[in-house]
Simulated scan of single mutants.
Amino acid sequence: MDYRQLGQSGLRVPVLSFGAGTFGGTGPLFSNWGQTEVDEARALIDLCLEAGVTLFDTADVYSAGRSESILGAALEGRRDAVLISTKTGLPMGDGPDEWGVSRGRLVRSVEAALKRLRTDRIDILQLHAYDSHTPPEEILNTIDMLMRSGKVIHWGVSNYPGWALMQLLERADQMNVPRPVVHQVYYSLVGRDYEWDLMPLGAHEGVGAMIWSPLGWGRLTGKLHRGGTVPAVSRLHETASMGPPVDDALLYDVLDVLFEIAAETGRSVPQVAINWLTQQPTVSNVIIGARNRAQLVDNLGAVGWSLDAEQSARLTRVSERDAAYPAAQYRRQEGFARLSAPLVKA
């Protein structure tokens, strides 16, 4: 397993991490992701650790806290051998103080997460969504307090607009408090919007990317084929519509090339799709998920080898689509192709 710097922090993380969104399985969304309980979670974690995957990602909103609770129970006795990443900020109820990252909500959320995770620290805390109601100064002062207490070691954001992340970075410098070092984002061969604005920002400011849904909400698992239908037993029936839409022409063009390269390399379609992501600038870590051992074993096979330059270029070409304004203008510039090398080096 390769290890990479998390942005410009001193933290080294494995290029793959395990996403615990399948743990618990309650609610209309998360019940379709998976319903893993403690014993099965422990077995999957064993497999991860054997492969060198030492980073586990969750969130308080996943199955209303059950994902954190199951992860904490499954990690009992080996906390110091792993890194835990969790997120907070999305609604946990209907009350006025059950969403966002105000000072009180953030402190309460961290305390609750620590209890559920059975730990005294969160290695990577991420604000799960942009909160327009809380001033950046309040967020930064609260994060600084939590880090000084040792309850949070590193921090970042998830699903943030570029201008809001830049605001946090600038104000952190002005206030002389820790900057966000990671941005957890959606990025896949059928969803490359991250490249338009957030990737250049990350490269310029030293913010590493943790990638969620690298298989495009299940579209790139190898179960879909041009001219075929969605298998009768597939989470795509319930989950694909919850993510960003994907044009069918783009999807099947990408799948055609993925199947070609999978045949050339002797790898699976998901392994090829994930491997391409690990080669992209600013990517520190790709989060893989699995409901069972077979899925996890396959996803773990995405690393330890590399697509050659021609194969990577084919995937880049076939998955390219027109960027929105103003990214379309600067992407035409010669220098765009020479974004800084990934902030992550083994």
Rank of each mutant, 00 (worst) to 15 (best):
D2I: 10
Q5K: 14
L6V: 01
Q8H: 15
Q8N: 15
Q8E: 14
S9I: 02
V13D: 09
L16C: 07
L16Q: 06
F18I: 08
G21L: 11
T26Y: 09
G34K: 03
Q35R: 14
V38P: 10
E40L: 10
E40P: 03
L55R: 09
T58Q: 02
Y62M: 05
S63K: 00
R66T: 13
G72Y: 06
A74F: 06
E76K: 10
E76P: 03
D80A: 05
A81E: 15
L83Q: 12
T88K: 06
M92C: 07
D94C: 05
G95N: 01
E98F: 01
E98M: 05
V101N: 12
S102L: 00
R105K: 11
V107Y: 07
V110W: 02
E111I: 02
A112I: 01
T119Y: 07
R121E: 13
H133P: 08
H133Y: 14
P135G: 09
E137F: 06
I143H: 03
L146P: 03
V152C: 06
H154K: 01
W155C: 08
G156Y: 06
S158K: 02
Y160K: 04
P161F: 08
A164F: 06
Q167Y: 13
Q167V: 11
L168Q: 08
L168P: 07
R171S: 13
Q174N: 13
V177P: 08
R179E: 12
P180G: 07
P180H: 08
V182E: 11
H183R: 06
V185E: 15
V185Q: 14
R192M: 03
E195Y: 00
W196L: 07
D197K: 13
L201Q: 10
G202R: 00
E205P: 05
G216L: 00
T229A: 14
E238H: 14
E238K: 11
T239A: 12
G243Y: 08
D247A: 13
L251R: 00
L251H: 03
L251K: 00
Y252E: 03
D253K: 02
F259G: 04
I261S: 04
A263F: 03
G266T: 04
R267D: 09
P270D: 06
P270V: 02
P270I: 03
N275F: 01
N275T: 03
W276P: 02
W276Y: 11
T278P: 00
T278G: 01
N292L: 06
Q295K: 02
L296S: 07
V297G: 10
A309N: 11
A313T: 10
V318M: 04
S319A: 09
R321N: 10
R331N: 12
R332Q: 15
Q333M: 14
E334W: 11
G335H: 14
G335P: 09
R338Q: 15
L339M: 13
K345F: 14
A346P: 15
